[in-house]
Design a protein around this nucleic acid. Sequence first.
DNA 1: CACGCGATTCGCT
DNA 2: GCGAATCGCGTGT
Length: 213
Amino acid sequence: MAGRKIRIPEGLEIIPPEFYSRPTEEVAPDLLGAVLLNRVNGKWRGGRIVETEAYLGKDDPASHAARSKTPRNSVMFGPPGRAYVYFIYGNYFCFNAVAHDGISGAVLVRALEPLYDIEGMRAARNRCKDILLCKGPGRLCMALEIEREYNCKELYHSEIIIAADKNWAAPQEIASGERIGIQEGGHLPLRFYIAGNPYVSRTPGKACNLDKT
DNA sequence: CACGCGATTCGCT
DNA sequence: GCGAATCGCGTGT
C-alpha cells in the first residue's frame, strides 16, 4: 500500500477533489446530505450538511473573491477541495469548501445535523441546547473546533474531511433562497438547504423550491 | 497608518 | 426583537 488509508465511520466515502472542480453554485446544493468530519481528540466529530451558500468570483459582489486576490481570500483562488476558514466579527469562524471551475469560489457551510461525537460538541459548545449545536456557521465551527489553522487544509485526506453518506437518500426537496447576512448581491438565490430540516439555521419566508432527483 | 465594518452569536427586554 | 461584543482585513488618506 502506497499511502495509508484514513479510517472514517461506516458507510461514508471521502469526496474527491474533482467533485469541487465545478461551478460553485452546482457544488453548493450537491454538498447537502454529505458529512463534515473533524478529528478531535482521536474521535471523528461532525454531522450532516443541511445548509450551504455559494460565493462566486468577481461577478458576485457579496463574495470575498469579488475583488482581487489578497492574503485573506487567497485560498478561494487556489485548488478546489480545500478548506477556507476565516475569522468574523472578532469572535467566530466560518468554514467553507473551495469550489470553482475557473478562478475562484467557495461554499459556506451554514449548518449541520449533529451525528458523530455529540458529547464532544456539547462540551465545546458549553452545553447549549442540542438543536443549536451546529445551527449556524459560527456555531458549527465552535462545535467541531474548527479554527484559523484549518484554513487551506485539503478536505479529502487529512483530519478534516467531507464524505458522502452511502446510506442516505437524497431529499426530494432542496430549497433555495437568498443568502443570509449580506448586503450586495443578496438577490441571488445562492443559499441551499434541506426543506423542513430542523437543523437549518433560518427559514426565511422568501424561498423557492428546486427539484433534485 | 487610521478607520470602518463584517458570510455572527448571545443575552437581555 | 434588538444591540453589544470584538478584531483582523481591506480600503483610502
